[in-house]
Design a protein around this nucleic acid. Sequence first.
DNA 1: TTTACAAATCGTAATCATTACGATAAAATA
DNA 2: TATTTTATCGTAATGATTACGATTTGTAAA
Lengths: 139, 139
Amino acid sequence: MNKKQAIQLLSQRGYKMTKRRKDMLTFFSHEDKYYTAKSLYEYMESIYPGISFDTVYRNLHLYHDLGILESTDLDAEKHFRMNCGTQHHHHFICSQCGKTKKINLCPMDDVHELLGNYQIEGHKFEVYGLCPECQVLAS
Amino acid sequence: MNKKQAIQLLSQRGYKMTKRRKDMLTFFSHEDKYYTAKSLYEYMESIYPGISFDTVYRNLHLYHDLGILESTDLDAEKHFRMNCGTQHHHHFICSQCGKTKKINLCPMDDVHELLGNYQIEGHKFEVYGLCPECQVLAS
DNA sequence: TTTACAAATCGTAATCATTACGATAAAATA
DNA sequence: TATTTTATCGTAATGATTACGATTTGTAAA
């Protein structure tokens, strides 16, 4: 998903295009990185001083529900990114900068048979560490 | 880790044994289940009306730091369980009751080579769904 | 067993992320 | 431009967690 596709989806579904919504998409337009709600809020605050939490969180949920964004819980805080889901995959996530790298491997292929009478509804597989750039900065 | 081992570890490390600490261990003594801080607090409140949050959370962290408990973030809330870590493994977690089942399979074996110049510091693999008991209750 | 003191707990307030709501403003379209 | 629906504002509430000075309690030495 990119900014253009997201705008198209919103108008298709009858949502109004506001400057705030567009700028939220701009903020997320890097497709390979997770952000916190806080960092989004700070960005929006810099453009729209005094912007309401309501606006930021409501639109975050809207985007998430529409599949424009995907999210993950890190340190008991939600992190969001552009949905990059064409087909099922997982992520390496840099614990320093939030950048991600796709992992084209899913452990579930082997797990189903280990969990015979358990009804599987979902799973999470993430790898954490430092991306090459942050390793350089840390050394 | 079981209750007896935990008590031994605490006294070894010079921590004082209080009734509250013992009862927290009792609460967690099922080795195959995750609990929220809230559910622990409610249990402790039933025994010690008016018990302080401080006591509950401080001891949760203590137990976690000592390796008596392990934790995971589910729905942006921390869940705790007795540490069952003799050797590395993962869990199926029932989204209804919190019960767990070991998964003796780790995807990292295959992942290392996919992430050549990324410095891996940790990973999370969990499977969610309904355990056999909760499937029966749900039907 | 009392005493002494470090450690644990209490009572309560603060913090952080998130959610919620009535009043107002703005986008879409007729 | 007028109308209507939706979005946003301003702000307060909620839920999980953390923090702190005052008080109490375990523990070990006298």
